[in-house]
Computed example of a mutant assay.
Amino acid sequence: MGQIPEIIPRSQTSADAVQELPHGVASYARSYPDGYVSAWHTHPRHQLVYAVAGLMMAEAGGTSWAVPAGSGLIVPAGMLHEIRMAGEVQLQSLYIDPAETGAEMMAECRAVTVSPLLAGLIAALCGMNNPWPLPPRAHHLSRLILIELGTAEKSPLALPYPADARLRRVCDALMDSPGSA
């Protein structure tokens, strides 16, 4: 963390097909093994990365984020980010078209607590596997998800990464070897 990132072209990421769907809110669910790294990349849509199980460590917008089970990270469209899996992680992601009504609350990168209602809505939408044409149920789930995301509480699990290059080197060394004196 803290180093100049290597950007992975979108054509090499696994969620690309979801980005191209005509849905205002598209879903994607997957499990990742311990140590998996979603290298530095961006998306044309806003993203909610929701940790159903496990722990994700993310860096976005100059901040390091811990995203444990029951939490999510909102990443605005076009924001460079990286996610590392600590242990096996089951995640559900939503990709939201920035032009979608209600998407304006996704313009700020932040960690949020995912309420049981929001978790159920996300699971239901992911379970539908992005049908097209969009059935009424998927449309209404999408609308409710955006409403609930708008009221989701911020999670305190964020730590700004230092701007000073000298302090960044110290932080990088500590991140590489947390047990070092």
Rank of each mutant, 00 (worst) to 15 (best):
P5W: 07
P5I: 05
I8N: 05
P9Y: 03
S11D: 15
Q12A: 10
S14L: 12
D16Y: 05
D16W: 07
A17W: 03
Q19W: 13
Q19L: 14
Q19E: 14
E20M: 07
P22L: 13
P22M: 06
G24M: 06
V25H: 06
A26E: 05
S27P: 04
Y28W: 13
G35K: 11
Y36L: 08
W40S: 14
H41F: 13
H46M: 06
L48S: 00
Y50N: 06
A51E: 03
M56F: 10
M57A: 14
A58H: 01
E59V: 03
G61V: 01
G62N: 05
T63H: 12
S64A: 15
A66N: 08
A66C: 11
V67S: 08
A69I: 04
I74S: 00
G78N: 14
L80H: 08
H81K: 11
H81Y: 11
E82K: 10
R84S: 09
M85S: 08
M85C: 15
G87L: 09
E88I: 04
E88V: 09
V89S: 01
L91Q: 08
L91I: 11
Q92D: 05
Q92V: 09
Q92N: 06
S93H: 07
I96C: 06
P98W: 03
T101P: 08
G102L: 07
G102Y: 03
A103R: 03
A103D: 08
E104D: 15
M105K: 07
A107L: 12
R110K: 12
R110Q: 06
A111V: 07
A111G: 15
T113Y: 11
T113L: 12
T113I: 15
S115H: 06
P116F: 05
L121Q: 13
A124L: 10
L125G: 00
C126Y: 00
C126V: 10
G127E: 06
G127H: 10
G127L: 07
N129P: 00
W132Q: 12
P133D: 03
R137Q: 12
R137P: 00
R137S: 09
R137N: 07
H140N: 13
I145T: 02
L146G: 00
L146A: 00
E148T: 07
E148A: 15
E148C: 10
E153S: 13
E153Q: 14
E153I: 12
L157A: 01
L159V: 13
Y161K: 13
D164E: 14
D164T: 04
R166M: 09
L167T: 14
R168W: 09
R169K: 14
R169G: 05
A173W: 04
L174G: 03
M175V: 12
D176C: 12
D176G: 11
S177K: 11
P178I: 02
G179R: 11
S180G: 09
